[in-house]
């Protein structure tokens, strides 16, 4: 995995003409953004923050998508436990 990451960083750096340090920085930013969105959605779905606050942090589209996903997962779990 470590070797694969190094190879990819090198390939991206060459393809984008950026230093590898910049590639790492951008990867960290994107990764953190994803983890932050997961945290916000988890807090929202867990009732720890309200819908408006969640929308403020991650946008309406992602909140609505999470709501739809949650509805589906709940339907599936309910069906599986009762089929």
């Amino acid at each position: 995995m470590a070797a694969e990451i190094s190879d990819r960083v090198r390939e991206i750096a060459e393809a984008t003409d950026l230093p590898e340090s910049e590639v790492f920085e951008r990867a960290l930013e994107r990764g953190l953004e994803t983890l932050w969105e997961d945290l916000v959605l988890k807090r929202y779905l867990g009732g720890k923050i309200d819908r408006e606050e969640a929308i403020e942090h991650v946008g309406r589209t992602k909140v609505e998508r999470a709501e739809r996903e949650q509805q589906i997962v709940e339907e599936d779990v309910d069906w599986g436990l009762n089929a």
Binding site: E37, L39, L45, R65, V73
Partner: peptide
């Protein structure tokens, strides 16, 4: 699969609660 991390955790919680 389409689901995000947060949604899966809610599914597991629902399973546990039931």
């Amino acid at each position: 699969l389409f689901v995000t991390d947060a949604v899966i955790e809610r599914g597991i919680e629902l399973l546990d609660n039931t």
